[in-house]
Amino acid sequence: MSMVETGVARSPGPRPVGTARRPRERTSVGLALLAGTGLVFVVAPFVALLLGAPWGRLLGLAVSGPALEALWLSLRTATAATALCLVLGVPLAWALARTTLPCRGVVRSVVTVPMVLPPVVGGVALLALLGRRGLVGRHLDAWLGVSIPFTTGAVVIAEAFVAMPFLVLSVDGALRSADVSLERAAATLGASRWYVFRRVTLPLVGPGVVAGAVLCFARAMGEFGATVTFAGSLPGVTRTMPLAIYLAMESDPELAVALSLVLIVTSVAVLVALRSRWLRPSGGPS
């Protein structure tokens, strides 16, 4: 969210005068305690995981063929899913924030459904639509001979389905708090809606889009339920890291821990790289 606020702060226009900063409150011990507990709550499980990790075999396990295969598949599918979410989700967020779509409130709620849905149910829903006997899938199968389940494409679809709300909500929020008058100014200069969107709107909500994409990618990397239900689990084709980790729990818990660490390290590395590339404080992409 802080990234969204950055975007707002960078936009010009009148700043609310009445909302001057409140006098700084004295640091509350209770608040600090709760904040500390919150941090421990989030971090402690990872620390436990690290302490229990099979450090002796870790490197050997982590760079084994199946582990790298699953990691590479996860990176590819999560990137593709994030790209799909950007292409479809940013315009959707724009429509929610900038147009007078009828029943926008309802649409906004519907968009967030994949967030509250248990991912396995999402997978079942995708099967109901795109499966071999699904609403659309049966026609794809009959007319084109195309079957989506059990393919890498199915992994991308499952991940994008589950991750999309994170992007849409983030961009929608950034758009709604961004200054509309700049877009109006652009229109008086003869710029079409598409041109305004590309040259003014997108750059202004850039931080919000990046924040959304980061959330989206992280969610896609961790996706399990919808993927295993809709895409199945075949090494190199549909078995992403989370699936490999869960399966490893069945036979070799140490391998599962090693794979988890690899997934965590990779995800954090990608997210940090994204942030430093796109969220530098001064000077956006020109």
Partner: peptide, 20 residues
């Protein structure tokens, strides 16, 4: 030549029931 290695037997059964 399987298209998927499922996590447990119930998951295999579900995919058969669904006709996938």
């Amino acid at each position: 030549a399987p298209d998927t290695y499922e996590q447990d037997v119930r998951a295999v059964l579900t995919k058969v029931i669904l006709g996938e």
